Amino acid sequence: MDILIALALAFAVFAVLRGREQAHRIALLGRVLGPYRIEPMLESLTEGYLRWLHEADAERRAQIWGTLAATEQTLAAQFSRFAADFARVPAPQAQISKLPFALPYAQPLLPGRWLFDARRLFELHARAIDALARNTAGLPHKERAYRMTAELYLMQHSCHWFCRSKNLASARLLARHRSSYAQVLAAVAPETRRDYEALVR
C-alpha cells in the first residue's frame, strides 16, 4: 500500500510540474504569435484548397485560387516575421526535447544531442512556406496546394511539439487532420524534409 501511495504522489507531482512547464511554453509561444493571424489563415487555406479542388466552374475556380494565392503571400510574410520575433527568445527557453514524451524541466539536464532549437525550426518553416507562396519550384496548382497543406500541418505539429511533446503533437495532428506525422513529413518539399530531419533527429 505504501508503494501505491508513493507512486500516486509521484505521478501527481509529475503532472503538476508538466502542467506548469507546458503552460509556460504555451504562454511564451502565444505571446510571440499574438500580433499575427497565422492560425486563422492556416485554416482558411486548407479549407480553401478543398473548395477549389471540388469547384466545377472554371471561372469560379480561378477566383478562389486568386484569393488563396493572396492568403499564401500574407501567411508567408506573417510567419517570416513571427520566426524573426521568436529568434529573440533566449536559447534556454527555445530548446525542445527530442524525447517523444514530456519530461518536465528536463531540458537543462539533457545532453545536447537530445535537444534542438525551436528558433531554427520556425526559421525552417518560414523558408519553406515562403518558397511555396512564391512557387519557386513552378509547381502546378494542385501539387502546390497539396504540398502547402503538408508544410502547414508540419509547422502546426512543431508548435504543438514545442508546447507539449512529440507524441501529443502527432496525436493532435491525426485527430484534427486525419493525417499521420509520417504522412505529412513524406508530403513536404524534399528540402524541408532534409533540413527538418537533420534538425530534429
Rank of each mutant, 00 (worst) to 15 (best):
V188R: 00
R31I: 04
A91D: 14
T71V: 09
R144D: 01
D195N: 13
A131S: 13
V16S: 07
D130Y: 02
L17C: 15
A145I: 00
L174Q: 09
M148I: 13
H54T: 15
W65K: 07
E39A: 01
W52D: 02
Y49H: 08
R201C: 08
E21V: 09
V32L: 00
V16G: 06
L33D: 08
A186E: 15
E59C: 05
Q107R: 15
L75W: 05
T71L: 11
H160I: 00
A23D: 11
L42T: 04
D85H: 14
A94P: 07
H177Y: 14
L109S: 11
L68S: 05
S158Y: 04
E197C: 14
Q63I: 09
A128F: 07
G48R: 05
I96D: 00
A102N: 08
W52G: 01
I38H: 00
A10S: 12
T136V: 09
L185W: 02
L110Y: 03
L132I: 05
L174D: 13
R176E: 12
E59Y: 10
R25T: 04
R88W: 03
L199E: 07
A23M: 06
R178H: 12
I5M: 14
Q73A: 15
P35Y: 10
L168I: 04
A84I: 01
I38W: 01
A133M: 02
L121F: 12
A6E: 10
P108N: 12
G30L: 13
S44P: 01
S165G: 13
L75Q: 11
Y105G: 04
L50P: 02
P40D: 09
K142D: 13
W52H: 10
A186C: 06
Y196S: 08
T46Y: 01
P35N: 12
Y181W: 10
L17N: 07
F116G: 06
A10N: 07
R134L: 11
L42C: 05
A15L: 08
G34M: 13
S179L: 04
R113Q: 11
V32W: 04
L154E: 05
T71S: 09
A87G: 00
R164M: 14
R18E: 11
S170T: 12
T136K: 12
Q107E: 13
A94M: 05
A77K: 06
H177W: 13
R201S: 14
I26V: 15
W52L: 09
N135V: 06
L17G: 01
T74A: 10
A12G: 05
Y36S: 05
G112Y: 07
A102L: 10
A198E: 10
T149G: 01
A137Y: 15
L68M: 11
H125Q: 12
Q73F: 06
A62F: 00
P40F: 08
M148R: 06
P100Y: 14
L121M: 14
L121T: 04
M155G: 05
E47F: 09
W161R: 00
Y105V: 06
L139Y: 12
P108T: 12
G48I: 09
R51T: 14
A137K: 10
P100F: 15
P104N: 01
S44I: 02
L42F: 09
R164A: 12
T67N: 15
A76F: 05
L75D: 02
E191L: 13
F14Q: 03
L139S: 06
N135K: 02
T149C: 02
T46I: 14
M1W: 09
A91N: 04
H141A: 15
